[in-house]
């Protein structure tokens, strides 16, 4: 059943009302209103330090806003929400970490549970199903530190899907993956959205791998933001206004390239 065939859920899965956040005297964003509905794919774009990770942390209830509120399923966001999946910004897993692929997924299934560390048959079955869903069976028993970035990221997706989340928060899940793995991982997330109506908030430097999946873009820059469909946001005039400096957007063969964005000088990845 695709989301369009499913009964429309009128209440947004996530909504931010008048959200504002800054650190010290630096404002990251303010006056942010955002409703994310069931099955919606939101891409969050912006240069380094524009507050993308902080925004996800606010959604997770880990970061208090300076003003405004974040509602998940109509209730204030709080840590440990059962129906929220999270793929953190990637960090290198040290070789020698005592975790195999399947153990990472197991932590998502029962890692928060106190009590004697006994793995139940249900836990094991849940992990097997998750591993199958992301196509990770073949490398699930190898040490995490010995797996490639793409393999680790598949396992991260499986871990985040553990409680069948209504909302999946992904922080640059494609970072340092090659093109083939970028496609594989984003398709995995998109398939989940289509089949289960999971809403997705997807932070990324480069929108191209997910361009065909994105419903709306939240573009952060210069302490300001713009929200809209990719066609509404990825335009010369809109981005020039956002950056406060002339910016050009080129589209060729289904790819989008933004030229002239100030932060592009600080890091070599071309945004959007």
């Amino acid at each position: 059943m695709t989301p369009s065939e499913a009964l429309p859920d009128p209440a947004p899965v996530l909504s931010i009302r008048g959200g504002a956040l800054g650190f010290g005297d630096r404002a990251l964003w303010s006056g942010l209103d955002l409703d994310v509905s069931q099955g919606e794919f939101i891409a969050v774009l912006g240069g380094n330090g524009t507050g993308k990770t902080s925004l996800l942390r606010a959604m997770l209830g880990e970061q208090k806003l300076d003003s405004g509120e974040v509602l998940v399923d109509g209730h204030p966001a709080h840590r440990g929400h059962r129906r929220m999946g999270y793929i953190p910004q990637q960090k290198i897993v040290a070789p020698g970490t005592p975790l195999r692929g399947r153990d990472l997924v197991m932590l998502g299934v029962n890692g928060q549970r106190f009590g004697p560390p006994i793995t139940t048959r249900d836990d094991r079955a849940a992990v097997d199903a998750l591993l199958t869903a992301v196509g990770a069976e073949t490398f699930a028993d190898r040490p995490l530190g010995s797996l490639s970035g793409g393999e680790q990221q598949r396992l991260r997706v499986a871990q985040a899907l553990a409680d069948d989340p209504k909302l999946l928060l992904c922080d640059e899940p494609l970072m340092s993956l090659d093109l083939q793995h970028q496609r594989a991982v984003s398709e995995l997330i998109d398939r989940r959205r289509q089949q289960h109506g999971t809403a997705v908030v997807f932070v990324t430097h480069d929108i191209n791998p997910v361009l065909s999946m994105v419903d709306r873009v939240l573009y952060l820059a210069q302490g300001r933001f713009t929200i809209g469909t990719p066609d509404e946001v990825l335009r010369d005039d809109v981005l020039s206004r956002l950056y406060g400096t002339p910016v050009e957007v080129f589209r060729s063969r289904g790819r989008v390239v933004v030229v002239g964005a100030p932060e592009a000088e600080h890091h070599h990845e071309v945004i959007a």
Binding site: L107, G115, P116
Partner: peptide
């Protein structure tokens, strides 16, 4: 140790996700 084993493992090896999951 046995009582806190799993959450402590989660917190030690995967602190960001553990914290988001309410550990």
């Amino acid at each position: 140790l046995l009582v806190v084993w799993r959450p402590l493992t989660f917190d030690s090896l995967d602190p960001e996700v553990a914290s988001a999951r309410g550990v």
